[in-house]
């Protein structure tokens, strides 16, 4: 496949999405019914946030959880983070940023059939850990990855 062809297919794909979305409007925002966990997202400490989002604060550190995040953030406001695990029976993945004033960033509820492998981007005010909590078969496991947030410049 030539590059030009690749480009064309890609464009066509994007257009199709737009057209269909506009016409069908299949799910309305009102249909999003999950109850947003206010207590968890306003909690000031890691333990409180984990307890409020996962039922209890105690987690078992696990090397089976892989957190992909940069060693040094290119932009503290946009730090890409991926969490994946080979564990079976994962119900949810919770993402926290250690040094943020409210550490809880996101909870991903994963129905059966969805792989425990999610990516998003978070804000980090300063150097610290990104923490992932995996709920699998009712048990909590966790892992951490340090991310340095720097002023930048003066290199090279």
């Amino acid at each position: 496949m030539s590059l030009n062809q690749k480009r064309r297919v890609f464009l066509k794909g994007s257009l199709a999405v737009g057209a269909l979305g506009a016409a069908a409007g299949l799910i309305t925002p009102g249909a999003v019914l999950a109850a947003w966990n206010k207590n968890a997202f306003t909690a000031k400490s890691i333990d409180e946030a984990i307890a409020a989002s996962n039922g209890q604060p105690v987690t078992t550190p696990s090397t089976d959880i892989t957190i992909k995040a940069p060693d040094i953030a290119e932009n503290g406001a946009v730090v890409p983070v991926s969490v994946a695990t080979k564990m079976k029976g994962v119900d949810s993945i919770t993402l926290l940023v250690e040094k943020n004033s409210t550490p809880l960033s996101a909870v991903f509820h994963l129905p059966k059939g969805t792989l425990p492998d999610v990516s998003t981007r978070v804000k980090m005010g300063k150097t610290g850990d990104v923490i992932a909590v995996v709920k699998a078969n009712g048990k909590l496991f966790s892992a951490r990855k340090g991310v340095k947030v720097t002023i930048g410049g003066c290199g090279g």
Partner: peptide, 11 residues
């Protein structure tokens, strides 16, 4: 296939 709860610290 996924249901997410997000806080303000998502970018």
């Amino acid at each position: 296939v996924i249901n997410c709860e997000w806080g303000g610290s998502v970018s």
